[in-house]
Nucleic acid binder design. Sequence first.
DNA 1: GCAGTATTTGACCCTAAGGTACAAAACGAC
DNA 2: GTCGTTTTGTACCTTAGGGTCAAATACTGC
Lengths: 192, 192
Amino acid sequence: MARPRKFQAEAAVAKAMEVFWEKGYAAATPQELGERMGLGRGSLYNAFESKQGLFECVLRHYHAHEAPKLLAFLTRPGPVKARLRALFLAVIEIDVADPERRGCLAINTAIELAGRDAAAAQLAARMFEQTEAAFLSLIEEGQRTGEVDATRDARELASFLLNNLTGLRVLGKTAEDTTRLTRIVDALMRSF
Amino acid sequence: MARPRKFQAEAAVAKAMEVFWEKGYAAATPQELGERMGLGRGSLYNAFESKQGLFECVLRHYHAHEAPKLLAFLTRPGPVKARLRALFLAVIEIDVADPERRGCLAINTAIELAGRDAAAAQLAARMFEQTEAAFLSLIEEGQRTGEVDATRDARELASFLLNNLTGLRVLGKTAEDTTRLTRIVDALMRSF
DNA sequence: GCAGTATTTGACCCTAAGGTACAAAACGAC
DNA sequence: GTCGTTTTGTACCTTAGGGTCAAATACTGC
């Protein structure tokens, strides 16, 4: 056959993800991408068509491996509302503690590239769907167990939760501490 | 004295704002900035220290002239809640109708530059404050007139509204129509 | 109408972005 | 061991980013 590649594709993409996550798409240079991924420009462009192509892989990777880490809070044992609150508070902690202010890559991508890169926008949108879906099934669970008012439109609540999670991740970008964000979570949990 | 500048500073900054708003900070080039502002590179760098300096002026301009356009919805006549709903629905319409998907410059800036440009981050944060303050005084008005439950923490509600507005503007980036966003506003208005 | 100051023009500079081209190397099949 | 294929690394290319500078110019105060 042929010469096998020396690098692990997934590992390299994970490294690239770090760069794009820290800097955004436009500010990430092929130079730094190559260095952090541990491969030369040749290999980089051989394995991934272009910067755009690489970024698409990165988004898929984030979708498949990074986003689920947070959503895992929703499938833990315990009361539905407690799980929700735990997720929101964890996100707040993570965002405020991060000196790089990376936030959420899906949101960052939607902000930076929606309207100029259809593929990226679509992948970001898919992640929003995914998150909303996770909220939806949790809400429905809560409605079955009586923890959540069953007369409310579950879909509406799920969208509402998604919206608040999104807002928090943006406000977390400039928040100096968690007080305002926690206050928001309080209001949110009180609202349904 | 000296030769007077040929261009109107405010008008030029407004033009620059368009560019940064459409493209983001990193993707806006001095070339395009100069062209759209109607002045050569020399003049550009003479009047504004640097790309960063210009961007700061742009943010101040947005803060002073663009953000108030939306917040004006809150000071119109009519019931407090109706005004709030009107603002949210207007934002949704604007965002979904915009083919450029510009969204909100304050949010875009927070996402792109928080953690790497302290001045920009601070200006974005100030705009969040401004918006929250507008919500706060409206809520307080509602509490005085009895339109809003006076037992609730007005500050909490104001932060909550800010968070939802922020979320909407992000989700609006990838939304194909207004259905989900309207649903969110419904949930929000029902929640207090 | 001249002096003095500030603006404008446009050429110019250096670095890097983003990508390509190609030789050499590394393997598996046979 | 050779062949054929794929990776790699390096050198290279073009365009543009971000910015500077000197000269030319246009005002105002006197």
